[in-house]
Amino acid sequence: MRRFNWLYIPAGLTYLFLYLPIVVLVIMSFNAADTPYRWDGFDTAWYGRLFADRAVREGLINTLVVATGATALSAVLGTLLAVGLARHTRSKLLDAIAVAPAVLPDIVLAIGLLAFYTAVQFTLGLHSILLAHAVFGTAFVAAVVRTRLAHVDGSLEEASRDLGATAPQTFVRITLPSLAPGIVAGALLAFSLSIDEFVIAFFTAGPQDPTLPIVIYSMVRFGVTPEINALATLLLAVSFTFVIAAQRLSRLTESF
């Protein structure tokens, strides 16, 4: 005899809570009315308006430029850092420095970088956001690569050294390939965090070249336009595809 499990109520609430706003957004993006508070029938006009919107298009390009650059920088710095922390030091202080960007409230890093850029008279623009995003990107790549390192067999590297390979040769031919899945996972994480990041970008952006989150912020603050619904739906579709693909990918790599 199975009794009703009362846990279904809060768990169901959780999922309802998580998906109700999303479902409403998606439905409203196909609304013909110019307000989200009335339904005038099915229409895709807001998507047309969105594609014609230059600010959104430029914001998207800026975001991709920043995220790509920050991810590349983070992948290199984070991987080296992970190897160094796991193999070359036992310092608790360096450990703490490496995780700090991940636990520091974003607004603290944001004001710190604004103060720093101003103090050294660094011009603000896409490059200043890119360098700022590489700070937390490095921390996340290092964290992911380190968990991978814990599962990598160190004896391969020892064998390589015993057979006469130099330290750099061993690093490139043995260490890096065995870390590759971790580096890819860390880089994907850094990339998606950078694409979504608003607070630090808001503080370190120049007057021109806003990233997409900054464009969305001003759209939301300015007032409710159904164009945001269309943009939201498209971004949702992209991230859903991305997450599901990543899930499939990780299941594939796990089976090795």
Binding site: P21, I22, V24, L25, S192, D196, F198, L212, P213, I216, Y217, V220, V224, I228, L231, A232, L235, L236, S239, F240, F242, V243
Partner: peptide, 10 residues
């Protein structure tokens, strides 16, 4: 994994 501002806007 969807934009934080859009979730708030919803």
């Amino acid at each position: 994994w969807t934009n934080f501002l859009i979730r708030t806007y919803a």
